[in-house]
Write a protein that binds this DNA or RNA. Structure first.
Lengths: 365, 365
DNA sequence: TTGAAAGCGCTACCAT
DNA sequence: ATGGTAGCGCTTTCAA
């Protein structure tokens, strides 16, 4: 039988309340007593019991906010599904979620939404947003109000956020590079399409991609670098123009898409490319449009980042922090998952005791 | 606030004890009362609260057994690490693990070990073994003794096991096929090396591999089919003989390895193959020797099955069944994970509230 | 067959 | 500043 708060109280000759105060920093305790309790707790290898804590937490009933972009390409839905799975999973412990989806990426709108959420009296917040001064400021304000916050999918470094839950963008880029080199394309000519030069994740992916090819000694030519603002139509137009602007023999045989806009790129490739597989398109994440073009053979594989897990884990870590006092790691990095047509479909189950894993569309958990 | 057993007791005009008896089938209850309680529970949408159950379960302190082969290639260590992570994770609820590793795959030894574990007075059992009559019989005996059992990694169908936790072998094979087709090998000649014709998993992988190539219209020639008994030295010898027996132009340019023995196959390919990458070797799982040959370029990628998750989940599902009365799904299928050199390394964290995820070597969760 | 009550470990509140 | 106690939801035991 493990050591309990009661054992410590007994050993220290104080009450359980006092031990609780010392170990969890609530209320005042005489320094000598506090010291003694701490020493005993450590000597006796005391570890708070989760079951006890969780049971007692029911009375409190936590509300956790979740902000995310309402961009309609399926990706954020997966994060959302993860968060909701966590909510169901933790509903036994009195957790409920307040979800706020904001259309688009407008900095002011996001900052505004953050402030609104801050006024809701929530116990904590998970946030998927853009890393710009406006949102950073809003996050700092929240921290000052004492609301713990987790940055999901996109980090907000040095804003006092509790933790970053998301992928290793450099690794996803490197993996794309590794995959590319396996394809054994003759005379590789690559067009790079990014969402925005301001988005760290996109830059890291491109960097990782180039890095690996250099390391492997794959000599390739970059035919161009397009910035599509994560917009499908713009991606279509720019890609089309690029393809038309070059003589057939200089046309890219692979298009690397670091951010959103895959649909547009693929459509352009379909209409103006040389064949079904030329140029190939190398995108990230598993969204409906990506699947469609994988089936058509235009996309050989896609590199994913477990959005479901990101949503799930963000809520879970926040819960553990709030209820258990467990500080989450600075970075909780999800896996870099390569998906082909053959391993696209995952099986559904009921993890964590009874809840749906909900891995239908998404990239994972 | 959710409905509790207390609410139901009140509504039904009985005590909480009676409700517990009805809902969990312990002791006798007058049929009409039982009926009423059941009806009310369903009407009021009663769901047992996990925190409460788990807290009460501490008194019981469950012991769970885990049997697995002690084959020394690193794969089973990952399953074990997963199981131990679950143990640490659930230690707050009084769970402890009794681990039994058995050298090799001898049916009688495994059956014997199962019987010994059955005599230990355990609450439940997770088993990674071979699916042969001897072990099946032992498992049936355990079921008759009322000991719930989960088949981990290798199913033991129709033995009354509670659940199968493992990969979809057909999918892993199909994914290997998909990957192979991406490699764009000219005039593919494939040598197939399997562990045993009696192992369903190996057969399914081969089937999946062939299936996909057929579907994709990749015409390839099979240069041979070797059975290496999952033995490295035998794999080496057979592969070597095969490579030497053919004229250079008929030699395989890819070796598909469905089971163990990758080390031997790679060594033979190294010594008798045409070059560093010819023949390529296409194996499964992520073990040290596989990594070594990935670095050398002999293995382009490996298809993994989340052994860590398998170990973790097996214990967790058994716990939820024993404590929460939650029946696990018939099949809990882990993901098919493609690993390249670039996404081999995963990040470590502390999941499930405080425990080490322990994802060093392994494939997962 | 049923009820009452103790207790799992922790938190929170009310006295002192 | 500290102790005592009720209670979170459930299981289990002892009486009746």
């Amino acid at each position: 039988m493990a050591v309990t708060i009661k054992d410590i109280a007994q050993a220290a000759g104080v009450s359980r309340g006092t031990v609780d105060r010392v170990l969890n920093g609530r209320g005042k305790v005489r320094p000598q007593v506090a010291e003694k309790v701490r020493r005993l707790a450590s000597e006796m290898n005391y570890l708070p019991n989760r079951a006890g804590r969780e049971l007692a937490a029911i009375k409190r009933s936590l509300r956790i906010g979740f902000l995310l972009p309402g961009v309609d390409n399926g990706f954020f839905e997966d994060i959302l599904r993860g968060a909701q799975a966590a909510e169901r999973n933790l509903s036994d412990f009195g957790v409920s979620l307040l979800i706020r989806q904001v259309k688009g990426y407008d900095p002011e709108t996001h900052a505004e939404a953050l402030r609104e959420l801050g006024a809701e009296g929530l116990s904590g917040l998970c946030v998927t947003t853009v890393d710009v001064p406006e949102t950073r400021r809003a996050v700092e304000e929240l921290r000052e109000k004492g609301i713990p916050l987790i940055a999901t999918n996109t980090d907000l470094p040095e804003t006092g956020r509790l933790s970053y839950v998301g992928c290793d963008y450099l690794q996803t880029g490197r993996t794309a590079g590794g995959l590319f080199s396996l394809l054994g394309i003759q005379e590789p000519r690559v067009l790079i399409v990014t969402g925005s030069k301001e988005i760290e994740g996109h830059n890291l992916r491109i960097q990782g991609f180039r890095e690996v090819l250099r390391e492997k000694g794959v000599s390739f030519h970059e035919t161009g670098f397009l910035v599509c603002q994560d917009d499908d139509r713009l991606a279509y137009r720019l890609t089309k123009e690029h393809l038309l602007s070059l003589p057939a023999e200089e046309t890219p045989n692979c298009i690397f898409v670091a951010g959103a806009g895959v649909g547009g790129v693929c459509r352009a490739a379909e209409e103006w490319g040389l064949s079904t597989r030329n140029p190939l398109v190398l995108p990230f994440d598993d969204i409906p449009i990506t699947r469609e073009y994988m089936r058509k053979g235009r996309i050989p594989a896609t590199i994913c980042q477990e959005p479901f897990e990101q949503g799930y884990r963000s809520v879970k870590l926040l819960f553990d922090y709030l209820v258990g006092g467990l500080r989450p790691p600075e970075h909780y990095i999800t896996r870099t998952v390569i998906k082909l047509l053959e391993n696209l479909e995952e099986h559904h189950h009921f993890p964590e005791g009874a809840e749906e894993r909900g891995e239908g569309t998404h990239a994972d958990p």
